[in-house]
Design a protein around this nucleic acid. Structure first.
Length: 298
DNA sequence: GGAATAACCTGGATGC
DNA sequence: TGCATCCAGGTTATTC
């Protein structure tokens, strides 16, 4: 499942290919991958064809490619199973290929940038760039203080230099909800999904259903530190791949699945105390935690 | 206004 | 072997 580390791996892979690239052609195979685009497939194809791309930027799980000369960008979200792959021009169709963007790069020649998505939760769109509310750069990879309108309501992620630690603590102090629910709320902190929420809570020894406002400042600081550690470690290992659901732009899997301590380890011993990791239903999904290390305190 | 829940989606795994 | 059901989860609309 693409969360911040996986999306950042994709962004880094895209940078050399899209920076300064010319969009030679666009082919939409499946309209469902344009759910965030308001104009339909023909509009997407015509609006993007013939433009030049500036760079690859990211905030949380959202990616965008600013278009040269206009305040617009191609915005992408990988959803559950989305992939952005770079292939040679004219490469055969990928399994679950939804959109193909043919690029002509001054240094790398012709490339195919392919958006593939099995479950079609992800999408691409062309969106307007607007100034950021805090005047800081819109996201990782772009110095401009601009962000797509679809991303403007998303909070910064914890690896963003402009992330507001104090504001994060203040938001938690106002929330009655379970801390895990708050971590998954992209308007509070972006980039964290089910996997890294479970891992960070395990590392900080916090029960996922602990009311956010009941956490001490010390515990929130520790949690914040563990979120950063987990995300940075996952990024260093190329992200988490359980199957073919997540790969980088070259189709290669990440290795962080081997470093997971809680997520997906139901019944296996906690690496810290040896007690079996438990799985409970939470928000239409699963929470994994150690019942001994992560005691529920209200 | 804040919080909780359902729906969207599809292929693999599992059970019968 | 084949069919039915369950499960995975990010985002958003809807409901409470």
């Amino acid at each position: 499942m693409p969360e911040l580390p996986e999306v950042e791996v994709v962004r880094r892979g895209l940078v050399p290919a899209v920076t300064g690239a010319h969009v030679a052609a666009v082919t939409v195979h499946d309209q469902r991958s344009l759910t965030r685009h308001t104009g339909g497939a023909a509009d997407f194809e015509s609006a993007l064809t013939g433009t030049d791309l500036v760079c690859a930027a990211r905030r949380g799980k959202f990616l965008w490619l600013p278009i040269a000369g206009v305040a617009r960008a191609v915005v992408g979200h990988l959803g559950m199973s989305g992939q952005i792959l770079l292939r040679e021009a004219g490469a055969p169709p990928e399994r679950f290929e939804r959109i193909r963007i043919d690029l002509a790069h001054p240094d790398h020649g012709e490339l195919a940038m392919i958006f593939a998505d099995q479950r079609t939760f992800g999408s691409l769109a062309i969106d307007t760039l607007v100034p950021t509310a805090d005047g800081a750069p819109g996201g990782c990879g772009d110095a401009a203080s601009l962000v797509p309108t679809q991303v403007a309501h998303i909070a910064r992620d914890v690896l963003d230099p402009a992330f507001d630690d104090r504001g994060f603590r203040a938001q938690l102090a106002r929330k009655d909800s379970a801390v895990k629910r708050v971590l998954l709320d992209q308007t509070v902190v972006s980039g964290i999904g089910n996997i890294y929420a479970d891992e960070a809570l395990w590392a900080a020894r916090v029960h996922p259903e602990t009311p956010a406002r009941s956490l001490s400042t010390r515990t929130v600081n520790a949690l914040l530190a563990q979120i950063r550690l987990v995300l940075e470690k996952a990024l260093a290992e190329g992200g988490t791949s359980f199957d073919a659901q997540y790969v980088n732009v070259n189709g290669q899997a990440g290795y962080f699945a081997h470093s997971l301590n809680a997520y997906g380890r139901t019944g296996q011993p906690c690496p810290r105390c040896g007690r079996p990791i438990v799985r409970v239903s939470f928000m239409n999904r699963s929470s994994h935690f150690c019942p001994r290390c992560q005691r529920l305190t209200r």
